[in-house]
């Protein structure tokens, strides 16, 4: 849930364009998968809606985003589309600029893809889905909490340390809360026999 909430005009345009250019690759792969499997469109759109709604519930000075849950349910390719929809919606509400959508999508997709990968590894190793989701979500989000300060530092040609000391602690705190929520949600989905989160799906 590390997200660059800066409005437009702060991150230089060349970095914004680089963000869009870089994200076009996973997005194109995701759209290709979506067109091949149109039955997944409802799940993609709904997860984006749930993720967006979760963002409106404030937690300390941050918010949930449910990106690892999106990755666990959709996988790395389709989650690229869902994450892009959420970040576009946020930008259209002023929550992070329109030009920053590319950068934010890369950050959030890395959480989704990382969450999926770690979840699959842990369930493959025999861990229960709920616990695997807890460890995967907490670990991935804690690691990605360190990334936006460096992204902003490079883009703004400044030091990352001020951002690391002010923003990252809140993100790490929220990361483990999101890990608990994701773990309970995945556990409930498994008990409901929903096939999206089955280890083999």
């Amino acid at each position: 849930m590390a997200h660059v909430h800066l409005p437009d005009g702060v991150i230089p345009l060349k970095w914004c364009l680089l963000g869009f250019a870089t994200y076009s690759v996973p997005l194109a792969l995701g759209l290709k998968r979506l067109v091949e499997r149109p039955s997944t469109i409802p799940l993609v759109g709904t997860l984006a809606a749930v993720s967006f709604a979760a963002m409106q519930v404030p937690v300390v000075c941050a918010h949930l985003m449910l990106t690892p849950l999106t990755g666990i349910v959709l996988g790395p390719r389709l989650s690229a589309v869902s994450v892009f929809v959420v970040d576009t919606a946020c930008a259209l509400m002023g929550h992070g600029g329109v030009t920053v959508v590319g950068i934010n999508s890369i950050l959030n997709w890395s959480e989704a893809a990382g969450g999926w990968l770690l979840y699959r590894l842990l369930t493959g190793a025999g861990l229960k889905p709920g616990r695997a989701a807890l460890v995967a979500t907490g670990t991935v989000l804690s690691c990605t909490a360190f990334v936006p300060p460096f992204v902003m530092a490079v883009a703004l040609n400044t030091s990352p340390y001020p951002f690391l000391f002010t923003l990252t602690p809140f993100w790490i705190l929220t990361a483990w809360l999101e890990a608990l929520v994701t773990s309970k949600t995945v556990g409930a989905l498994v008990r409901m026999n929903v096939e999206w989160v089955s280890p083999g799906s």
């Binding site: 067109v35 469109i41 759109g45 709904t46 809606a49 967006f52 709604a53």
Partner: peptide
């Protein structure tokens, strides 16, 4: 483009119901 357009529409159509459900949970 195709696919993304439908995802946008499903997102928009689902959003209000999901937000109401969230409020209900809280």
């Amino acid at each position: 483009p195709p696919g993304l357009a439908q995802a946008f529409l499903v997102f928009h159509g689902s959003l209000y119901g999901v937000m109401r459900a969230f409020r209900g949970i809280l």
